[in-house]
Design a protein around this nucleic acid. Structure first.
Lengths: 249, 249
DNA sequence: ATATTTTATGTAAAATCGTGCGATAAGCCT
DNA sequence: AGGCTTATCGCACGATTTTACATAAAATAT
């Protein structure tokens, strides 16, 4: 019995039964408990299963649940979400892109707010469904595994039929001189479509992502109207954007 | 019974019933009251439930509808998922509806399988994204809060452009005489569209949902080709469907 | 106020865990 | 082939976790 075989067996067993007990596996595979313990430790490190006292359980359900602690710079993003919230009034039509910042916005929307929100992001859509008075419309299409958003022709075509009041665009990357950029070509196309489908473009970003530079250009900085970061609007880091005529919150 | 399983069970029970009695859990799980008490204390500290005198109550509005009842009632669904898997070969185009059974199918798809899957279900889409070699296309549209799927004109229009080899339809309701039915009018329309977009319709259901009867009719039983339940194909409960010409797995 | 139920705390037994060690096997270089 | 390194595995032992039971305190009901 090779180690790889054992590992595969364990992962599979956990997948199917959702749980395994250490002793059962040890007997089933005719190895010592220690060995299984080591295997489980390894698989836990790899994120394949979740080790618990006495065995292991599946961890594949945790995907959708919201984990504040695993969101990078969560505090900052809460600040951003709070600022973003102030731009919203009842009955607006809003487009939201993906990203953890937008997820935080979605999470912190007050219950009484009535909105219609278009989004191509699975996590954002999931979060919005928990809101009592928001109508969510998912912009469908081919799903990008990395970004967990719909991209491609279908999504772009759908967006082209929308005319929204506001677009919250989470950005991994913006630069006062070169504008907005993205690493993924599909996402670039999608965000271009968003730009054209909303009257007002609001970019959300944590300050550390300002002035980095990435591969594909989306648009010049003048194409957006409002910039929201966790910083005070008077902070020097956002001055170049003010100089370009952007509203900074 | 692993400790972690107990905790999951308790959390689940609280979410579903909004309250649990300490003694009930102790009996149900065959452990001492002290143990349950400790569990409740722990879960309270973790913020998962709110402990009160004599038991615990829910402390949040978040409802993770799919995730829960699966972990414990999911044996049957694993069986169904395994049967469903056998119908799939590489390069198929598949439509999957929502529901926990389909979620289980999505979860248990073997890594090597290459498929293109259309789905209007957020949870199913989320799950499929974890698969290395499946291309997922989300059928977008207005999202139903209850069912967590896209419904309405957009979704139906998108489906009408698809021609799939197979459709896995999770059913809350089917009856050998009256056919398939649903409670929600929007979902009825959506499932009708699915029926027309796939060459072969496979209905997945746990046996307890057979022969219940619900509001709106989707189609007669003859419109579907294959029925998969957790039961043996020779079980008396599925005989009426065989008599109607269905393949039963 | 008294009786009953529920809780908190301490204790001990059992199960499980982590770790170091040595034996064996497998891979690798010369 | 021979010698060396590395990985794997089982065993032993002390540490930790988990659990049931007992008892007294607290909360609730009558």
């Amino acid at each position: 019995m090779l180690k790889e075989e054992r590992l595969n067996y364990i992962v599979n067993e956990v997948k199917i039964r959702n749980r395994v007990q250490l002793l059962d596996i040890a007997q089933k595979l005719s190895v010592s408990e220690d060995t299984v313990r080591r295997d489980l430790n390894y698989l836990d490190e790899q994120g394949k299963v979740k080790k618990v006292h006495g065995g292991a359980i599946s961890n594949s359900f945790h995907v959708y649940t919201y984990r504040e602690d695993q969101i990078y710079a969560h505090e900052d993003k809460s600040v951003i979400a709070e600022k973003a919230r102030q731009l919203l009034v009842d009955n607006m039509v809003v487009i939201m892109s993906g990203g953890t910042t937008n997820l935080e916005v979605a999470r912190l929307l007050p219950d009484h707010l009535k909105l219609t929100i278009f989004t191509p992001s699975l996590p954002v859509a999931m979060q919005l469904l928990e809101h009592p008075s928001i109508e969510t419309i998912f912009v469908g299409g081919k799903l990008s595994k990395d970004a967990q958003i719909a991209v491609g022709g279908d999504a772009i075509r759908t967006l082209s039929q929308v005319k929204a009041d506001l677009c919250f665009m989470g950005m991994g990357n913006l630069n006062a001189e070169t504008g907005l950029a993205e690493f993924d070509w599909d996402v670039v196309q999608l965000k271009k479509a968003m730009l054209e489908s909303a009257k007002k473009i609001v970019v959300l970003t944590i300050s550390e992502k300002i002035n980095s530079s990435q591969r594909f250009n989306i648009c010049p900085i003048e194409s957006i109207h409002t910039l929201i970061t966790e910083l005070d609007p008077s902070h020097s880091k956002v001055l170049p954007f003010k100089a370009k005529g952007l509203e900074v919150l």
